[in-house]
């Protein structure tokens, strides 16, 4: 059969291209536009080349925020992934307990993010908050637990909030992965005399690889982009100790109105997230190379 020699097929890609253009490319180009020009007002702009990028890359505040961000996202993954797996393993497999667990796990996921920040402000207040008053009345700490006073307490509060908010997602994903394992695997493991650790290591964990990949990617991206909850809870403080990338970016863009540097920063931010997602994806894909069922 002879091939048709025209390029009409490209028209079929057009609708998708238009949608992507409006949803991603055009907004992104606006940011690019800002990042290479100094814009004073309509029609008043100066081309500055890579100046904003150079400025941002050598900005120590951005370095600090970036470092904090890595620390935060790293801790989030280290806590939420194992905790999520443990919760999923402990969840009941049948009966009314399943629905009860699923509903209570899903609750934090449906609360608006800025409300979460507010909940935790009140919850951890040393004068009226259940958590704040509770932990202080134990008297184990040398000083008062107050996240507005000490950076360490601010970090602990932010991390607990994040873990409370998002571990249920990891747990739900893992639970779905576990439920998909056919009963015969467990039966075979019992007959083979496998310990519960061996069953986890050689059956449950490998079979959860797919959902864990999704969980790691989602949690990495989301925690790397975290804004609302932290903005509400600590506003980036005390000092700058919980000023993560997005908080610093918003400060730069809306409070100081440095649109050029903020735009350059946004692009750097975007590239970092993309690079890490790619790296995680490749790593998790290759852990079990050739073991696709």
């Amino acid at each position: 059969m002879e091939k048709w020699q025209n390029n009409k097929a490209w028209f079929l890609v057009l609708p998708a291209f238009i949608i992507v253009a409006f949803s991603a490319i055009i907004p992104l180009m606006t940011v690019v536009n800002y990042s290479i020009q100094d814009i004073f007002g309509p029609g008043e702009s100066v081309f500055v080349g890579t100046e904003w990028f150079e400025e941002m890359l050598s900005n120590y505040r951005l370095h600090d925020a970036l470092w904090r961000q890595f620390m935060f996202s790293g801790l989030v993954l280290l806590i939420e992934i194992p905790l999520g797996i443990m919760i999923a393993l402990a969840m009941p497999k049948r009966g009314w307990g399943v629905s009860a667990c699923l509903v209570s796990l899903a609750l934090p996921l449906v609360i608006p993010w800025n409300v979460i920040g507010t909940i935790w402000i009140i919850f951890t207040r040393p004068d009226i908050g259940l958590f704040g008053v509770g932990i202080n009345s134990l008297g184990l700490l040398g000083d008062t637990f107050d996240h507005t006073a000490r950076p360490l307490y601010a970090w602990i509060t932010v991390l607990i909030m994040e873990v409370w908010h998002w571990t249920p997602l990891v747990a739900l994903l893992c639970y779905a992965g576990l439920r998909a394992i056919p009963e015969a695997y467990y039966e075979a493991a019992r007959i083979d005399g496998a310990s519960s650790w061996a069953t986890f290591r050689y059956i449950q964990l490998p079979k959860m690889r797919g959902v864990l990949t999704i969980a790691v990617l989602l949690r990495w991206m989301d925690s790397f982009l975290i804004y609302s909850e932290i903005f509400t809870l600590t506003g980036g403080g005390p000092g700058n100790t919980t000023t993560f990338l997005s908080i610093y970016l918003v400060k730069l863009a809306t409070m100081q109105f440095d649109l050029g540097p903020a735009a350059a920063f946004s692009l750097i931010y975007f590239v970092i997230v993309l690079l890490f997602c790619f790296a995680f994806y490749q790593a998790l894909l290759n852990v079990g190379k050739g073991e696709k069922v």
Partner: peptide
């Protein structure tokens, strides 16, 4: 006792 199931059960990794 040993049992062989309807679908092959393997330790994939």
């Amino acid at each position: 006792i040993a049992q062989v199931f309807q679908f092959p059960v393997l330790y994939d990794t």
